[in-house]
Nucleic acid binder design. Structure first.
Lengths: 340, 340
DNA sequence: TACGGTGAGGAAAACGGATTCCTAGTTTCC
DNA sequence: GGAAACTAGGAATCCGTTTTCCTCACCGTA
């Protein structure tokens, strides 16, 4: 499509309305002083021709692009996708477009994308990652907000899920149900998502008379590890024996689902004998699990939305600093409550 | 960030190199005739200042934006995300940026996004959807390629997964394993993904001496329905009874996973008694299933990549017409083969 | 020595809007 | 009735690059 036949310029509208281009601009942007009749005539002409002002020209003149970059290092998108969607959605409200740049966890690629975003003079950048572990900041001449993965520089603006609160609410929920002997199963031990949640759980139990049973377990973020971990928790327990725990808090819905499966395999009833909790509120896991999982929804879309808000504020000259926690939401289902 | 202090213009480079702006442009773009020494001097100056040409200005002059729109109507992103990522990846190679526009299945929103893409004078648009059902085309003055969800207008360029081939390969695989009495479990009966796969299975069985056992079953795309459907297939079968089928082909990995669970619950061995196949190769389902699922990988990233290629070709003046099928890949795992 | 050809680089004109002046009318006020 | 104060709208400038001319110097050739 080389010659773009149907593209309408401001001069076309001006000609049809019988005014000058500058008048058209004023009419459509509600600036300058024009008679209402003129404004209306121009509007109608623009409408009739389907005139849509050229964003490049506008950007050039306005010295800003009305575009922000979404730099994602998460190729699978499990976590960054909701963040990105939430952000994109918040941006649309501000008449801002989103430029997608996926780096698939590759520094060279990321550098290339950063350069491309700078070339496009994006008004700001939202950086998202795969994990909640801190990542190196990017150096660019425009505002940046880190979402999900915070920046290693505490001066940068970051928004991360409030895992501590999330897990505290899980603990409070289990304690309220009368559970006291609780085991923890994490994912990879070198990741904040595992350790932070453990710390929050341990603290909450300590404060309210619960007991963290056994050593915290770390492995991979898979259902398989959830099953194995449950075996470790149960030890050589046989149906009918007293159970070493009355609840297991697992650090993800995948783990929890695997855990439920193994508990069922071994004749342990969920939640009557052992309550189980997950984390993430990933519907295909949490709802498909038998029973459905009590879990924590990190509300990643809200997180992304919040990141977009902070970015827009920064673009408007009010930058934020430091890491902001985005609130999670406890979702109670049958794996603890006994009702679907 | 109002005044963008660090932004370098072409005139700055020109001043440093002691030449005119036009010479800088020629030097950096390898056009015009310049002495190698001059070119090098300019390059060095640009490098030193970290000059990155303003894309808006470049677009304005070039009359194209070097940007394409990715219009997605899939809010969850299960299917369109891989397509989008594949496309974005292919575009980066061509120095093209991707503008993300998610419409969450809302026509008003979609219209708004379309307008925004037109305003940005994107060079082309890739439209993706949630299902493989045809969707209404968009009317814009630039090339469009429909990915995953084809356009209702057969003249438009669309790329869709080749479900017929995928399911045929499943059938061939099952037949090669000696299975002959095969049941089919679909998802929603009003969706092409259910009906097309059924048709392909039925055709393949007919051609090669297999039998489609019972009525095809349609329901929702959930594990729950997979479990229910297996109950329907087995009827009042008791362990030890002869089985009505020796294989079940389910239209998604979610269905198949649910199916496997129910088969195990009822004491039917997979794959010894009944082979099970899924569709989609969604890792969290296919790999976590017990046993792991033989399935079809629709290779959506390749599909997205192909859509991007077609779009780039169209932008270069060679538009494609009609619907192209993107090849799937059979992935054999333990649910049919007996080995992990 | 004069002249066409060629190579290097500069000047200027797009590109499409937004914005900042201006300039004619038209009011308003004394 | 005349000058100041507004108003409505047009002309010109700018945004940062690319691209199309031009110009000037230098070369070889007649």
């Amino acid at each position: 499509m080389t010659e773009a036949p149907g593209v309408v310029r401001i001069t076309d509208v001006a000609a049809l309305a019988g005014v000058s281009p500058s008048t058209v601009s004023k009419a459509l942007n509600d600036t300058g002083s024009l008679r209402p009749a003129t404004r209306a005539r121009v509007r109608e002409a623009a409408e009739r021709l389907g005139f849509v002002p050229d964003a490049s020209a506008r950007s050039l003149s306005a010295r800003r692009s009305f575009t922000v970059g979404l730099l994602s290092t998460d190729s699978a998108g499990r976590f960054s996708l909701p963040v990105v969607l939430g952000a994109e959605n918040a941006l649309v409200g501000g008449q801002i477009s989103a430029l997608l740049a996926t780096a698939r966890h590759d520094a060279v690629r990321e550098q290339h994308h950063v350069r491309s975003l700078v070339a496009r003079r994006v008004d700001g950048i939202i950086v998202t990652g795969r994990t909640t572990d801190a990542r190196p900041p990017i150096r660019v001449p425009m505002p940046v907000v880190y979402a999900y993965s915070p920046s290693q520089d505490p001066q940068d603006a970051s928004v991360v899920p409030d895992d501590a609160t999330g897990m505290s609410e899980v603990a409070a929920h289990l304690l309220a149900l009368g559970r006291r002997r609780i085991a923890y199963v994490g994912g990879r031990g070198d990741q904040a998502a595992s350790t932070l949640r453990l710390a929050a759980l341990a603290a909450a139990l300590e404060d309210h008379g619960g007991t963290l049973v056994g050593e915290p377990l770390f492995g991979e973020w898979s259902e398989r590890w959830g099953r194995l971990a449950v075996d470790l928790v149960l030890g050589d327990h046989r149906p009918g024996d007293p159970l070493p725990v009355d609840a297991i808090a697992l650090a993800s819905d995948q783990l929890a689902r695997g855990g439920c499966d193994r508990l069922r395999d071994r004749g342990v009833r969920v939640p009557e004998d052992v309550a189980v909790t997950g984390y993430d509120d990933w519907d295909v896991m949490a709802l498909a699990s038998r029973p459905p999982l009590t879990t924590v929804d990190p509300q990643l879309d809200r997180l992304g939305q919040r990141a977009a808000e902070l970015l827009l504020a920064a673009i408007d000259g009010t930058p934020a600093h430091g890491t902001e926690l985005s609130p999670p939401r406890l979702v109670v289902r049958a794996s603890t409550a006994g009702d679907a």
